[in-house]
Write a protein that binds this DNA or RNA. Structure first.
Length: 324
DNA sequence: AATCCAGGCAACCGCTCCGAC
DNA sequence: TGTCGGAGCGGTTGCCTGGAT
């Protein structure tokens, strides 16, 4: 038995907003605010729109100081680093970019930035298949059978495979579905765990990388954000709270240490050499990386590529349970 | 000039969260 | 403590536009 719809679908207008509708909505909110009830708002104004639609229109388009398009390199790097760190939490990412909306950032990532970062993906897959046919059997199977996974899952899996390259000394170890069947992307669907807590609990025991990541190069997430201001907001802090669904310990409880006392998130990185075959970002980005004194990921030189990979893999672990 | 196709983006859908009762 | 309903979020859809053929 589903929920009652939030509005009368039959009598609600859909599709693009007209300038008149925009004007009505903006004028009303400028004068009276939203009144804390989006559902009732369209009736007050006389708009034949769903309240949710009004809210979306206001937040994404009519709200003052909204910026559209023209993302700067700095914004690119912030988006990239946050996506790697926390995944597709667009609202949290948007909170770090004044004037940007979550929808804008989401669209920008899906249409441009992601492609930029995955630019070398195909080429690298070809190289990998020549050098390590055994290890890439699963990857090749994915390429041949995209229907097995959704496009997004496949894409994340491809990113994941790149991270495995980053962790090359152990990749064949933890990529082995026999050793880690519960967490293998192609096998995890065969594992039935009744509730999310059980999934999270089971992930806590997954430490394939724990054997080599404990070194002393701690960084503060705040420093990732160009050292200007803490990258986390109250929302981020909330999202990092296991009770709120984000589990910082997903597979990496010893790598991610949440210090609630100081309200700073510490990540632990390790050092290793970046080679062409282990690089997952595009040629374009790599060129920039080599030609600039600071990291192309922004001024956060403390965020080495290893950390990028580590946190992205953690994020992948998150994705895994969401897709189950 | 007409058609096709891919990219970009606004908007919708359905789900979860969370506060009020 | 449980239920209800609004708010918020992320994924997805579908339309529009511009470039290629």
């Amino acid at each position: 038995m589903g929920r009652a719809p939030c509005c009368d679908k039959a009598n609600v207008k859909k599709g693009p907003w007209s300038p008149e509708e925009d004007g009505k909505l903006k004028d009303y909110i400028d004068k009276y605010g939203t009144g804390g009830n989006w559902i009732a708002l369209p009736q007050k104004i006389g708009l034949k729109r769903c309240g949710k639609s009004c809210r979306l229109r206001w937040l994404n388009y009519l709200r003052p100081n909204i910026k559209h398009g023209g993302f700067s390199e700095e914004e690119d790097s912030i988006i990239l680093r946050l996506y790697i760190s926390i995944g597709s939490r667009w609202s949290i990412i948007a909170a770090q970019l004044p004037g940007r909306t979550d929808n804008d950032i989401k669209n920008y990532w899906n249409t441009k930035l992601k492609k930029k970062m995955l630019g070398r993906q195909k080429q690298m897959n070809c190289q990998d298949s020549l050098t390590d046919s055994n290890e890439n059997t699963i990857s090749n199977n994915n390429n041949k059978s995209p229907q097995i996974l959704s496009n997004s899952a496949l894409e994340r899996l491809q990113l994941h495979m790149q991270i495995q390259n980053l962790q090359s000394p152990f990749s064949s170890f933890y990529n082995n579905p026999i050793l880690w069947p519960k967490f293998h992307p192609l096998l995890q669907n065969t594992t039935t765990i009744p509730d999310q807590n059980a999934k999270l609990a089971s992930q806590e025991s997954f430490h394939p990388l724990g054997v080599n990541v404990h070194q002393n190069n701690s960084i503060k997430l705040a420093e990732i954000n160009n050292g200007v201001s803490p990258v986390y907001s109250e929302n981020v802090e909330q999202s990092l709270n296991p009770a709120q669904g984000f589990h910082p310990n997903c597979g990496f409880s010893q790598d991610l240490q949440l210090d609630n006392g100081s309200k700073e998130l510490f990540l632990v990185s390790n050092d290793f050499e970046i080679t062409n075959s282990s690089r997952w970002w595009s040629e374009e980005v790599e060129l920039e990386r080599k030609t600039t004194s600071s990291s192309p990921w922004g001024s956060a030189s403390v965020l080495d590529q290893t950390t990028e990979g580590m946190v992205m893999l953690q994020d992948y672990a998150q994705m895994s349970y969401h897709s189950m």
